[in-house]
Design a protein around this nucleic acid. Structure first.
Lengths: 239, 239
DNA sequence: ACCTGAACACCGTTCAAGT
DNA sequence: ACCTGAACACCGTTCAAGT
């Protein structure tokens, strides 16, 4: 019943309100629908008003990342490195799954924001404080890569899948399946292996299972190198 | 000396010429500068002319991917799975480094194009044909993920870095370094460890070394699971 | 069959002005 | 100090028309 502009004294904008509104908007409608203009509309303000609180769109995205990085649990107090790392990664994973746009944004930017740096620093600390040498820790961090955020670069999973696409995947028509079997027999065999129990070809994989499988492969390898006192000992280190 | 439109009988467009021109344009100026409009201009044609050969921009990107996937070497003839996989991955890596935009494009799309499927099928085949069970192969493919294309999701490396950014990274001012040391001591220690030999803080890491380190961690883990006859044996498989 | 031109509905962002 | 309005230089794409 609000004809005319119900001029409730709209709260003054702040960087924080802008960032949180942006996160909420991306959570609900996806990052593709987040534009300076759509965000302004949600906040009941003209697009240019945002630029008082955010330098530009990149700065907005960086800020959004920092907001959600703050949601990752701190490391647990324990001396066993493997468990500490494992839990932290799985906590990050839960956060990134709540904010499905965040993965893509993390991949996109160079992301040297304060929050991201703080998390990285704390993550490295988990190794160093538990006796890992700096050299090994360095290479280990590279090997872990995006898995410190709880995601693996999976092929063929679309993080922003529209339901239509998902439905199409789930019910492939017979002809397409036939073609598939001819041309890509190995893909099909592997896809079938994961899904014979629920009868569909698409989405039969348990993402969480796959993630932990890969994470444990990695942690095993790391533990092995650590136990063997591995160093990079690269030729020309004294050059 | 071409005043007026030098009406050389411009070659008729084809899907192939369009795709190759797009690849060349992205190679030279980066994917951000590739638009339907800029591509049309390069081809000396009006934007809408492209739509006869390409359904839309997504289709263009898919096509570009298929062009470069064709550049990956076929698997070598050998019976040792580890070496075959390793070489194939490193070949893919060389291709993706020639076309630096491709990594981002691969990440972005669901990418179920014929070329991508064919490569995936052949990749899976390398395991199956060398005695890996289907179940293990399935999980292994998930664990390998984007590494089958020769890239790891690295944090803090910008694939499309502008030179200005790179320069800024390479020569951090003293004050920034000081701040860094206070706030992110662990990040700094690790960064220093890799670079004491060339004296700069930024880009001191040997990407190729890091990639192979991580790849070998993974391959070791895979070999271990294979040797132990690992199966997923998930509860409820008969449900 | 292939290419063109004008138009539509979007972007991020600048600049000068309002209160 | 904060917000506004109009404008600029871009996008991808539709539609009706040209040859």
């Amino acid at each position: 019943m609000d004809h005319g502009t119900r001029a409730e004294p709209r709260e003054r904008l702040s960087r924080d309100t802008v960032l949180r509104a942006a996160v909420a908007l991306a959570d609900e409608y996806g990052i593709a629908r987040l534009s300076m203009r759509s965000l302004a509309e949600v906040l009941g303000v003209v697009p240019m008003a945002l630029y008082k609180h955010v330098a530009n769109k990149d700065d907005l995205l960086d800020g959004m990342l920092d907001v959600i990085v703050g949601e990752i649990d701190p490391p647990v107090e324990e001396r066993e490195w493997r468990d500490v790392i494992r839990r932290r990664v799985l906590s990050a994973r839960r956060v990134l799954r709540r904010h499905r746009w965040a993965r893509r944004v993390l991949e996109t930017r160079t992301a040297m924001t304060p929050g991201v740096l703080a998390y990285t620093d704390s993550f490295i600390g988990m190794f160093l404080e538990r006796g890992f040498p700096v050299d090994l820790t360095h290479h280990v961090m590279h090997a872990i890569g995006s898995r410190m955020w709880g995601f693996t670069q999976e092929l063929f999973d679309d993080p922003e899948a529209d339901p239509a696409q998902a439905a199409a995947d789930a019910v492939p028509d017979q002809a397409a399946l036939q073609q598939m079997a001819m041309r890509y027999p190995n893909v099909l065999r592997v896809a079938m292996a994961s899904t014979h129990d629920d009868g569909v070809v698409g989405r039969g994989c348990d993402d969480q299972f796959e993630f932990e499988f890969a994470l444990d492969l990695l942690l095993d390898g790391i533990g092995d190198r650590h136990a063997r006192g591995w160093t990079s000992a690269r030729p020309g280190a004294d050059r």
